[in-house]
């Protein structure tokens, strides 16, 4: 769509929406959000970009093959269950570590977060596969 307003808006909205999606992903464990909705938001961001600049530009902006992205998501989610297996616990049992990050304080990082990142990538990739392939002229 050749609209200056849309293009300008899309250019600014893409990073904003992406940051928002990451915030949703990271805060998901305690506040509303999570990997699923985060992935949807980030897919929406690139969809908006595709509407403004076309499908190929959006694909370039993603920077990674969408099928690879979706597969990567599933792989990350599966890998997040492996530490439990190594410790002879049921697959996907959560493990947490407190990491002090300067300026923020102690941050709890755990395998469920890794799992959620996997969900994020899968949803992001699959939603874009569907949207961008449908958008092909």
């Amino acid at each position: 769509m050749n609209s200056l307003v849309l293009r300008t808006a899309a250019r600014f909205l893409l990073p904003l929406l992406l940051v928002f999606s990451v915030v949703l992903l990271l805060q998901g464990h305690n506040e509303p959000g999570g990997g699923f909705v985060g992935g949807l938001v980030s897919a929406s961001a690139f969809t908006l970009y595709a509407v403004a600049f076309g499908r190929d530009a959006a694909l370039r902006a993603v920077g990674i093959n969408l099928q690879v992205l979706a597969g990567l998501g599933v792989t990350i989610a599966i890998l997040s269950g492996v530490p439990a297996l190594v410790l002879s616990e049921p697959f996907l049992t959560g493990h947490w570590a407190t990491v002090p990050i300067p300026g923020i304080g102690d941050v709890k990082i755990g395998t469920p977060l890794l799992f959620d990142i996997g969900v994020y990538c899968t949803v992001w990739g699959v939603a874009l596969i569907m949207v961008l392939n449908l958008a092909e002229e």
Binding site: H29, N30, G35, K108
Partner: peptide, 12 residues
């Protein structure tokens, strides 16, 4: 370690 029950159910 999560206060968002929906998310805890989903990812843990």
């Amino acid at each position: 370690h999560g206060r968002n029950v929906v998310n805890v159910i989903l990812v843990d």
